[in-house]
Design a protein around this nucleic acid. Structure first.
Length: 480
RNA sequence: GCCUGCAUGGCUCAGUCGGUGAGAGCGCCGCACUCAUAAUGCGGAGGUCCCAGGUUCGAGUCCUGGUGCAGGUACCA
């Protein structure tokens, strides 16, 4: 499986919305690795965006300096968010990127032509609009600007794309998003301007091969990273032979990924991705997160305050498949205390404590069939089923459902403790019931791994080995 | 304007191909328990499944219209 995130432009530090995407990708990568499948998980940054140039100008620092500094902040998400990406691509630094973009440009040249483009240009947005006024409400009137650019015959790919996406050979998830793309395609496609004058781009970006006055449209530059980062054997292995190629993207960039990118690949004669998985946005206290408006949530600060477990858990447990998720620290704390401290942590703690109190920390016999067939039946069933439910949920990219399958073990185990009441039973029965519980906790650790890797390791350590370590709370209580 | 999606108990949400009396968690009330991080378990109250039509033996679940909200509308994860 080859799984990617989008590469964000780096005009600012990363925010919680990107953390959502990269944690989802991380879960998929860890899950498939655990099943023994080869996995390559890639992320990176879009260094060549004009927005980076504008941000640097606003700060009065060289573009190179700003881009390097902010890109480093994205790469540094690895530790706090416990990410397992295999490669981090920066479009201005990766050795093969520029050559790769040039190669693709040449491969699609049969679909390129020069045309003079005349449009209404908003200085505030630094972009063209087909008609006024500027949707962001900038004061300055739109200027009529004429520029000659390279155009790509996108219109040619409408029918092939309808077929690919409609048939599911190119899977767009969730279905609501697929329908959106199909509706857009049915509406028809215009050819696409795929270069900019180098002057307007401030000379930043990748020059068009054979036409140094133009730079490659930044989206083409950025999208290409999914293949340009794969060099030599890797290209063959991960882009040509690998059947499962998954792009995780935000809802705002669906068209680039489900329309422009596949069209580009078709034109270039390259294989297509298999899945495009679309997530919605995270809002902050009811307001849209936006770098420009200053409404932002710093995932690293959250991890410092509450820990990686709480942050990852919130992103996976609280964010619905369709619809924006509203983030507040109160919700993060409530979720973590309820599910992690009171749920997983308390369960493991009470089980380990009993093993110590009644068994001196070790079990002498495995869980017997009698216990598994009696009061422990539910627990054994739920535990046994959890792995399959996680598999199925992640096949649907339903992270919430996947996490719920893990939690079901905790609920069943707590219910079993109340029913079996190990403290009130004769020693042999007591040990049998504790053995069932310890087995459930071990499976819990296994199933938790893709979601909360370090916490899963702590659970495994707490219920592992001949003699269990002394009980210790696994998750701090964050509230109150 | 156009396009798309959403609208289920106080809050956050599940509800697969339409089918036995509509669900979960949180919050609230009560009970139980004491192994556990004032944790856990059980039970209860609480809903005209946005509105109006329609299809059907039967619709939260399909169709039409309306209302409200959100997003997109071509360089925002």
């Amino acid at each position: 499986m080859y799984v990617t995130t989008t590469i964000p432009y780096v005009n600012a530090r990363p925010h919680l919305g990107f953390a959502l995407e990269i944690v989802q990708a991380d879960v998929l990568a860890r899950h498939h690795r655990r099943r023994g499948e080869p996995v390559r998980f890639q992320t990176g940054t879009d260094d060549n965006s004009l927005k980076n140039v504008l941000a640097a100008e606003a700060e009065g620092v060289p573009v190179r300096e700003l881009v390097d500094r902010n890109a480093a902040a994205f790469e540094a998400l690895r530790e706090p968010l416990e990410l397992s990406f295999d490669s981090f691509v920066r479009t201005s630094r990766h050795p093969g990127h520029r050559a790769g973009v040039e190669r693709i440009w040449k491969a699609v040249s049969h679909d390129l032509y020069r045309r003079s483009y005349e449009g209404l240009y908003c200085v505030g947005c630094e972009q063209f609009y087909p008609e006024g006024p500027c949707p962001d409400g900038h004061e300055a009137p739109l200027q009529r600007v004429a520029e000659e650019n390279w155009f790509f015959r996108l219109s040619r790919y409408r029918d092939p794309l309808l077929d690919l996406i409609g048939s599911g050979r190119l899977r767009v998830e969730p279905a609501a998003r697929r329908n959106e793309v199909l509706a857009f395609l049915r509406g028809g496609l215009d050819d696409l301007s795929v270069s900019r004058s180098a002057a307007r781009a401030r000379g930043w970006g990748i020059p068009v091969p054979g036409d140094p006055d133009q730079v490659v449209y930044v989206w083409w530059d950025a999208l290409a990273n999914y293949v340009t980062a794969l060099e030599d054997d890797d290209h063959e292995r991960w882009w040509v032979r690998e059947p499962r190629k998954i792009h995780l993207v935000g809802k705002g960039v669906i068209r680039f990924h489900a329309v422009h990118w596949p069209a580009m690949l078709l034109s270039a004669g390259l294989p297509l991705p298999s899945d495009i998985v679309v997530h919605d946005y995270v809002t902050a206290g009811g307001r849209k997160i936006s770098k420009s408006s200053g409404v932002t949530v710093d995932p690293v600060a959250l991890v410092r305050a509450y820990g990686a477990d709480a942050v990852r858990w919130w992103l996976l447990r609280e964010v619905p498949r369709v619809g924006d998720a509203d983030f507040t620290e109160e919700r993060l704390v409530a979720r973590a205390d309820e599910d992690l401290a009171n749920g997983i942590g308390n369960l493991v703690n009470r089980v380990v404590t009993m093993v110590h109190r009644f068994q001196d920390g070790h079990l002498t016999r495995p869980a017997g069939d009698a216990e598994a067939g009696g009061a422990g039946r539910d627990l054994v069933d739920v535990t046994r089923r959890a792995g399959r439910l996680v598999d199925a949920a992640l096949e649907d990219y339903d992270f919430r459902r996947a996490v719920a399958a893990v939690q079901a073990i905790v609920e069943a185990a707590n219910a079993y403790v109340e029913r079996a009441r190990p403290w009130g039973r004769p020693p042999a029965e007591r040990e049998a019931s504790l053995a069932v519980l310890v087995a459930a906790c071990r499976e819990l650790a296994v199933q938790l791994e893709p979601f909360l890797p370090s916490a899963a390791a702590r659970v495994a350590a707490a219920v592992g080995g001949e003699r269990l370590p002394a009980p210790r709370p696994l998750f701090p209580r964050l509230g109150r």
